[in-house]
Amino acid sequence: MENYITDDSLKHIKLEMQAGVVGIAVTRVYIKDTGNYKKLFDSEPGAGGHISETKVGVNRLLENDILKVNTYMDLSNLTPQQRQKAIANIYIMYTLSGGVEGDKNFEVDPLEIDTTDPLRVLITKKLKFV
């Protein structure tokens, strides 16, 4: 799992996510400290799954936590011929800021794309704060 280095400060860590997908997409962000993932927030309606820069917590409290970002995309608005190409062209850039590493970008790994549902695609990114 990719990670992001925090420090001992009370400065906020922020997440920004740029989603470049032609399907109808929404995004939900979670945090896990102990136990299950807890929902933090969703993308705005009509935003195409894009998350503008949003606070996810403070440095000191996030150490060892895991941030999970689920982007769920429906392919109904594409022709059957376009759907596979749309999956191949998924672009998502996650950017964390506010920690020791400053702005750090994370891209989608092919293994993070779930295509088992013929009508939907789920992209799950997990990032560990260390």
Binding site: Q18, A19, G20, V21, V22, G23, I24, A25, G46, A47, G48, G49, H50, N77, N89, I90, Y91, M93
Partner: peptide
Amino acid sequence: TKHPNITAL
């Protein structure tokens, strides 16, 4: 190619 700013709309 990938399109960072594309959306369904």
